[in-house]
Protein backbone atom coordinates (compact mmCIF):
# COMPACT_ATOMS: atom_id res chain seq x y z
CA UNK A 1 0.00 0.00 0.00
CA UNK A 2 1.40 3.38 -1.02
CA UNK A 3 1.15 5.99 1.67
CA UNK A 4 -1.64 8.54 1.22
CA UNK A 5 -0.76 11.99 -0.10
CA UNK A 6 -2.86 13.74 2.55
CA UNK A 7 -2.67 15.63 4.80
CA UNK A 8 -1.98 18.82 2.90
CA UNK A 9 -0.88 21.67 5.12
CA UNK A 10 -0.83 25.32 4.13
CA UNK A 11 1.27 27.33 6.52
CA UNK A 12 0.79 31.10 6.20
CA UNK A 13 0.74 30.84 2.40
CA UNK A 14 0.85 34.14 0.55
CA UNK A 15 0.61 34.84 -3.18
CA UNK A 16 1.75 38.20 -4.49
CA UNK A 17 1.23 39.21 -8.10
CA UNK A 18 2.15 42.52 -9.65
CA UNK A 19 3.10 44.01 -6.29
CA UNK A 20 -0.29 43.11 -4.83
CA UNK A 21 -1.17 40.44 -2.27
CA UNK A 22 -3.86 38.38 -3.98
CA UNK A 23 -4.04 35.56 -1.44
CA UNK A 24 -3.13 35.05 2.18
CA UNK A 25 -1.77 34.62 4.59
CA UNK A 26 -3.75 31.39 4.54
CA UNK A 27 -3.26 28.46 6.88
CA UNK A 28 -5.26 25.26 6.76
CA UNK A 29 -5.01 21.51 6.91
CA UNK A 30 -6.77 19.25 4.44
CA UNK A 31 -7.24 15.69 5.63
CA UNK A 32 -9.82 13.01 6.17
CA UNK A 33 -12.73 12.60 3.86
CA UNK A 34 -15.51 14.62 2.33
CA UNK A 35 -16.12 17.71 0.28
CA UNK A 36 -14.80 21.14 1.16
CA UNK A 37 -16.65 23.95 -0.57
CA UNK A 38 -14.81 27.23 -1.11
CA UNK A 39 -17.13 30.22 -1.18
CA UNK A 40 -16.44 33.90 -1.73
CA UNK A 41 -17.22 36.76 -4.07
CA UNK A 42 -15.51 37.31 -7.45
CA UNK A 43 -11.86 38.08 -7.01
CA UNK A 44 -11.77 36.86 -3.41
CA UNK A 45 -9.07 34.32 -4.26
CA UNK A 46 -10.90 31.00 -4.71
CA UNK A 47 -9.09 30.06 -7.91
CA UNK A 48 -5.79 31.22 -6.49
CA UNK A 49 -6.27 29.14 -3.33
CA UNK A 50 -7.14 25.97 -5.27
CA UNK A 51 -4.23 26.45 -7.65
CA UNK A 52 -1.83 27.09 -4.79
CA UNK A 53 -2.96 23.88 -3.08
CA UNK A 54 -2.47 21.90 -6.29
CA UNK A 55 0.99 23.38 -6.79
CA UNK A 56 0.28 25.46 -9.88
CA UNK A 57 1.14 28.79 -8.32
CA UNK A 58 4.43 30.16 -7.14
CA UNK A 59 4.08 30.74 -3.39
CA UNK A 60 5.81 33.91 -2.26
CA UNK A 61 5.64 33.25 1.46
CA UNK A 62 4.77 30.32 3.67
CA UNK A 63 4.64 26.68 2.65
CA UNK A 64 2.27 24.16 1.18
CA UNK A 65 3.25 20.62 2.15
CA UNK A 66 1.82 17.34 0.96
CA UNK A 67 2.65 13.99 2.42
CA UNK A 68 5.22 13.36 -0.30
CA UNK A 69 7.27 15.24 -2.86
CA UNK A 70 5.20 18.08 -4.37
CA UNK A 71 5.63 17.19 -8.05
CA UNK A 72 5.10 13.46 -7.81
CA UNK A 73 2.00 13.68 -5.59
CA UNK A 74 0.39 15.94 -8.19
CA UNK A 75 -0.21 12.94 -10.45
CA UNK A 76 -2.47 11.55 -7.71
CA UNK A 77 -4.56 14.71 -7.68
CA UNK A 78 -6.71 16.14 -10.44
CA UNK A 79 -7.85 19.66 -11.21
CA UNK A 80 -10.88 20.81 -13.16
CA UNK A 81 -10.12 24.32 -14.34
CA UNK A 82 -12.59 27.19 -14.31
CA UNK A 83 -12.07 27.37 -18.09
CA UNK A 84 -11.70 23.83 -19.44
CA UNK A 85 -8.45 23.19 -21.32
CA UNK A 86 -9.26 21.74 -24.74
CA UNK A 87 -6.61 19.74 -26.49
CA UNK A 88 -6.51 19.65 -30.30
CA UNK A 89 -7.81 16.11 -30.24
CA UNK A 90 -11.05 14.22 -30.32
CA UNK A 91 -13.25 14.33 -27.23
CA UNK A 92 -12.41 10.72 -26.47
CA UNK A 93 -8.66 11.27 -26.80
CA UNK A 94 -8.88 14.35 -24.55
CA UNK A 95 -10.50 12.28 -21.81
CA UNK A 96 -8.10 9.39 -22.33
CA UNK A 97 -5.00 11.60 -22.32
CA UNK A 98 -4.01 11.21 -18.61
CA UNK A 99 -4.01 7.42 -19.01
CA UNK A 100 -1.89 7.72 -22.14
CA UNK A 101 0.67 9.64 -20.04
CA UNK A 102 0.69 6.67 -17.67
CA UNK A 103 1.66 4.44 -20.56
CA UNK A 104 -1.68 2.67 -20.93
CA UNK A 105 -2.32 1.60 -24.51
CA UNK A 106 -4.66 3.62 -26.68
CA UNK A 107 -7.44 1.05 -26.97
CA UNK A 108 -7.80 0.51 -23.24
CA UNK A 109 -7.48 4.20 -22.45
CA UNK A 110 -10.20 5.08 -24.96
CA UNK A 111 -12.50 2.33 -23.69
CA UNK A 112 -12.17 3.68 -20.17
CA UNK A 113 -12.70 7.24 -21.48
CA UNK A 114 -15.91 6.18 -23.20
CA UNK A 115 -17.22 4.70 -19.94
CA UNK A 116 -16.47 7.92 -18.08
CA UNK A 117 -18.07 10.03 -20.79
CA UNK A 118 -21.26 8.07 -20.24
CA UNK A 119 -21.04 8.33 -16.47
CA UNK A 120 -20.69 12.14 -16.54
CA UNK A 121 -23.60 12.36 -18.97
CA UNK A 122 -21.57 13.58 -21.92
CA UNK A 123 -23.80 12.77 -24.89
CA UNK A 124 -21.70 14.42 -27.59
CA UNK A 125 -20.06 12.70 -30.55
CA UNK A 126 -16.93 11.37 -28.90
CA UNK A 127 -14.94 11.23 -32.14
CA UNK A 128 -15.53 14.89 -32.94
CA UNK A 129 -12.81 17.44 -32.18
CA UNK A 130 -13.09 18.68 -28.58
CA UNK A 131 -13.39 22.22 -29.96
CA UNK A 132 -16.94 21.57 -31.16
CA UNK A 133 -18.25 20.89 -27.64
CA UNK A 134 -20.69 23.35 -26.07
CA UNK A 135 -19.74 25.16 -22.86
CA UNK A 136 -21.49 22.66 -20.64
CA UNK A 137 -20.18 19.66 -22.57
CA UNK A 138 -16.66 21.01 -22.19
CA UNK A 139 -17.06 21.02 -18.44
CA UNK A 140 -18.31 17.45 -18.44
CA UNK A 141 -15.39 16.45 -20.65
CA UNK A 142 -12.99 18.11 -18.20
CA UNK A 143 -14.63 16.29 -15.28
CA UNK A 144 -14.37 12.93 -17.04
CA UNK A 145 -10.70 13.62 -17.77
CA UNK A 146 -10.11 14.52 -14.12
CA UNK A 147 -11.78 11.33 -12.88
CA UNK A 148 -10.02 8.94 -15.24
CA UNK A 149 -6.98 8.44 -13.02
CA UNK A 150 -9.19 7.90 -9.95
CA UNK A 151 -7.47 10.76 -8.07
CA UNK A 152 -7.10 10.76 -4.29
CA UNK A 153 -7.73 14.50 -4.18
CA UNK A 154 -9.93 16.30 -6.69
CA UNK A 155 -9.98 20.08 -7.11
CA UNK A 156 -12.86 21.65 -9.01
CA UNK A 157 -13.03 25.34 -9.83
CA UNK A 158 -16.68 26.21 -10.44
CA UNK A 159 -17.36 23.00 -12.38
CA UNK A 160 -21.05 23.74 -12.84
CA UNK A 161 -20.78 27.36 -13.95
CA UNK A 162 -22.16 26.71 -17.44
CA UNK A 163 -24.45 23.82 -16.67
CA UNK A 164 -28.25 23.70 -16.67
CA UNK A 165 -30.14 22.32 -13.68
CA UNK A 166 -30.38 18.76 -14.97
CA UNK A 167 -26.66 18.59 -15.71
CA UNK A 168 -25.81 20.23 -12.40
CA UNK A 169 -27.83 17.58 -10.57
CA UNK A 170 -26.06 14.86 -12.58
CA UNK A 171 -22.64 16.27 -11.69
CA UNK A 172 -23.58 16.60 -8.03
CA UNK A 173 -24.54 12.93 -7.97
CA UNK A 174 -21.20 11.98 -9.50
CA UNK A 175 -19.30 14.14 -7.02
CA UNK A 176 -21.17 12.65 -4.07
CA UNK A 177 -20.42 9.17 -5.39
CA UNK A 178 -16.76 10.09 -5.93
CA UNK A 179 -16.57 11.38 -2.36
CA UNK A 180 -18.14 8.20 -1.04
CA UNK A 181 -15.55 6.19 -2.94
CA UNK A 182 -12.90 7.96 -0.86
CA UNK A 183 -11.75 10.88 -2.99
CA UNK A 184 -11.13 14.08 -1.05
CA UNK A 185 -12.84 16.93 -2.92
CA UNK A 186 -12.17 20.67 -2.79
CA UNK A 187 -14.50 22.74 -4.92
CA UNK A 188 -15.31 26.40 -5.42
CA UNK A 189 -18.76 27.53 -6.40
CA UNK A 190 -21.06 30.54 -6.54
CA UNK A 191 -24.09 28.29 -6.17
CA UNK A 192 -25.16 28.50 -2.52
CA UNK A 193 -27.74 25.74 -2.94
CA UNK A 194 -25.04 23.47 -4.28
CA UNK A 195 -22.83 24.30 -1.31
CA UNK A 196 -25.65 23.36 1.08
CA UNK A 197 -26.24 20.09 -0.74
CA UNK A 198 -22.66 18.94 -1.16
CA UNK A 199 -20.48 20.47 1.52
CA UNK A 200 -19.07 18.70 4.51
CA UNK A 201 -16.94 21.76 5.27
CA UNK A 202 -17.11 25.32 4.07
CA UNK A 203 -14.31 27.81 3.64
CA UNK A 204 -15.30 31.42 3.09
CA UNK A 205 -12.81 33.70 1.41
CA UNK A 206 -12.85 37.44 1.44
CA UNK A 207 -10.16 39.64 0.00
CA UNK A 208 -7.68 36.76 -0.21
CA UNK A 209 -8.16 35.58 3.36
CA UNK A 210 -10.14 32.78 4.95
CA UNK A 211 -12.53 34.63 7.19
CA UNK A 212 -14.63 31.59 8.05
CA UNK A 213 -14.02 27.89 8.09
CA UNK A 214 -16.62 25.56 9.57
CA UNK A 215 -18.61 22.37 9.21
CA UNK A 216 -21.50 22.79 6.83
CA UNK A 217 -24.33 22.93 9.37
CA UNK A 218 -22.52 25.34 11.62
CA UNK A 219 -21.64 27.59 8.71
CA UNK A 220 -25.15 27.82 7.30
CA UNK A 221 -26.81 28.00 10.72
CA UNK A 222 -25.06 31.17 11.61
CA UNK A 223 -22.15 32.56 9.66
CA UNK A 224 -20.09 34.62 12.05
CA UNK A 225 -19.13 37.39 9.68
CA UNK A 226 -21.16 40.04 8.00
CA UNK A 227 -19.59 39.24 4.62
CA UNK A 228 -20.43 35.54 4.75
CA UNK A 229 -23.96 36.23 5.93
CA UNK A 230 -24.51 38.69 3.11
CA UNK A 231 -23.01 36.26 0.59
CA UNK A 232 -25.27 33.33 1.46
CA UNK A 233 -28.34 35.53 1.69
CA UNK A 234 -27.56 37.03 -1.67
CA UNK A 235 -27.40 40.53 -0.19
CA UNK A 236 -25.51 43.24 -1.98
CA UNK A 237 -22.75 44.47 0.29
CA UNK A 238 -22.51 48.24 -0.11
Amino acid sequence: MVSPILPLTLDAVELRRGGKRILGPVSLTLDGEGITIVLGPNGSGKTSLLRAMHGLEWINRGHATWNGEADSVRARQAFVFQTPVLMRRSVLDCIAYPLRLDGIDRRRARDRAAELAVSVGLNATLDAPAQVLSGGERQKMALARALIRAPEVLFLDEPCANLDMASTAEIETILARTRDAGTRIVMSTHNIGQARRLADDVIFLHDGRIIESARRDAFFAGPGTLEARAHINGDLIP
Binding site: L56, S72, F79, V85, Y97, L101
Partner: peptide, 13 residues
Protein backbone atom coordinates in the same frame (compact mmCIF):
# COMPACT_ATOMS: atom_id res chain seq x y z
CA UNK B 1 -0.13 25.74 -27.94
CA UNK B 2 2.03 25.68 -24.81
CA UNK B 3 0.17 28.70 -23.44
CA UNK B 4 -3.08 26.75 -23.89
CA UNK B 5 -1.80 23.46 -22.51
CA UNK B 6 0.54 24.67 -19.80
CA UNK B 7 -1.70 24.32 -16.75
CA UNK B 8 -3.14 21.00 -17.87
CA UNK B 9 0.23 19.42 -18.58
CA UNK B 10 1.67 20.64 -15.28
CA UNK B 11 -1.44 19.48 -13.43
CA UNK B 12 -1.20 16.01 -14.97
CA UNK B 13 2.49 15.87 -14.10
Amino acid sequence: LWADYHDLLISLH
